[in-house]
Design a protein around this nucleic acid. Structure first.
Length: 114
DNA sequence: ATCGTGACAAGGC
DNA sequence: AGCCTTGCCACGA
């Protein structure tokens, strides 16, 4: 449980990640850009790392880096968990990388107009 | 308040 | 074509 209102930045990141459709993925930079803080792409990843304590849980497995690599798979407790979750949604993952990344890529800008 | 760090991104060598 | 360095912004101690 966190304080009344967590850092807005994290909150917004969680909001966007939660809007990611099933079987789709997005990049940290895209989310950061959608938030208006394109330079804080790292913060997005940082937020993801803290997402495990967010409520409700965040589908962080749908967030990968710009090349479609499951950079934060280790944050899931099991390195293979993230990949399993993605494959379970229909996202092909080979060598910790999303197959056809451009095809499954989802632009957070579509829901940034919340 | 300051220092260090981090699931990234882009440019340079 | 691949590896390395720098930039950015927010959070934790």
């Amino acid at each position: 449980m966190k304080a009344n209102n967590e850092t807005n930045f994290f909150e917004w990141v969680y909001e966007i990640v939660r809007q990611i459709p099933e079987g789709r993925v997005t990049s940290y930079g895209a989310i950061a850009r959608a938030l208006g803080t394109a330079g804080s792409s790292r913060m997005v990843g940082y937020a993801m790392r803290a997402a495990h304590r967010a409520n409700p849980p965040i589908p962080a497995h749908r967030v990968v880096n710009r090349i479609g690599v499951l950079s934060g798979k280790m944050a899931f407790g099991s390195p293979s968990l993230m990949q399993q979750l993605l494959e379970n949604e229909g996202v092909e993952v080979v060598d910790d990388k999303v197959v056809n990344f451009s095809a499954v890529f989802w632009d957070p800008q579509e829901v940034i107009s919340l």
